[in-house]
Simulated assay, not measured.
Amino acid sequence: MSSPLSPNTFLNALLAEGLTVVEVAGWRTRNRNHKGPWGPVHGVMIHHTVTTDTDRSVALCRDGHAALPGPLCHGVIAKDGTVHLVGHGRANHAGLGDGDVLQAVAAERSLPADNEADTDGNRSFYGFECVNLGDGEDPWPAVQLEAIARVSAALCRAHGWSARSVIGHMEWQPGKIDPRGFTMDFLRDRIARRLAAGPTKPPSKPKPSYEPFPGAAFFAPGRRSAVITAMGKRLVAEGCGRYAVGPGPSWGEADRKSYAAWQRKLGHSGSDADGIPGPGSWAKLRVPNT
């Protein structure tokens, strides 16, 4: 049993475990705390998204849907191992589950069968949605499984928990099957080995010459980044600049118009030339790595 980590401590714990983290705008204050308390926390719960696309999965988990408002977790773990933080506080991920399971997690002992739904889990668990269809066929890349283990180990390390504090949604709520495609005992074994060995960062990767596509959701009003400045300079160099002043680091209408001109230069039209970057046109723009 612990008080929830502050946003900064939470983020730093993940970074110290060697994870690649994307901070989705507003994650630090996005929560469902008005519906009930968050904490004390007892563990980490792992889910699968039943989706495939990273951007759409992140948007869904951030915003939720008509029947279940977001955030639907605290972080989304993509197939490439990147962790997208979407919320901090109470999140709609666990729902009602078995109180006997919660007691077992708190005591860090073997789990009983989850045959009741009588206890609020949103209060007591960190939740991570992992991008996977959950059909038993969609593969789990090694880098994604490693990230799931690292996320879990990071929070266990920060709270002084063992791997027994990590459970799957299937172990909490009757009728749930997630995560499907690996066993929780397999995952807990990996977590235990990480905790025993201490935090180790993966080997550093060579920095690419060009900025990788940050995802369409990155280009939203108010987004401020050196990547946007670098993009704007490339658009000007390609004769597509539509700037009265700049380019600068804040995404705005001039950036959108300039990018739309680039899309048209590539031969796109209609909705394919709406000014919102996509992976194909972005790769051809060759924005220098910032």
Results as ranks from 00 to 15, higher is better:
G97S: 08
G121I: 08
G70E: 01
R109Q: 12
N132I: 02
N122V: 13
F128G: 01
S124P: 10
A117K: 14
Y126E: 11
L96Y: 15
V131K: 02
K79S: 09
D100C: 13
D118H: 13
A94E: 00
K79R: 11
L111R: 14
G127Q: 09
I77S: 03
E129C: 03
A91N: 00
L102E: 13
A106V: 08
H74T: 01
L102P: 11
G121D: 07
R90N: 04
K79I: 05
N115S: 13
L96H: 13
N122F: 11
P69R: 05
E129R: 03
G136N: 03
F125R: 01
I77L: 04
D135V: 00
G89K: 00
D118N: 15
D114H: 12
F125N: 07
A117C: 07
N122D: 15
G89M: 01
E116M: 11
R109S: 10
V101R: 06
G134Y: 06
Y126L: 08
A104M: 02
R109T: 15
D118C: 15
P69N: 06
E116H: 14
A117M: 12
D100E: 15
H74I: 00
N132A: 03
L72S: 03
V76Q: 04
N92Q: 08
A107R: 11
L72N: 05
V76D: 05
S124A: 14
E108L: 08
A106H: 06
G81D: 12
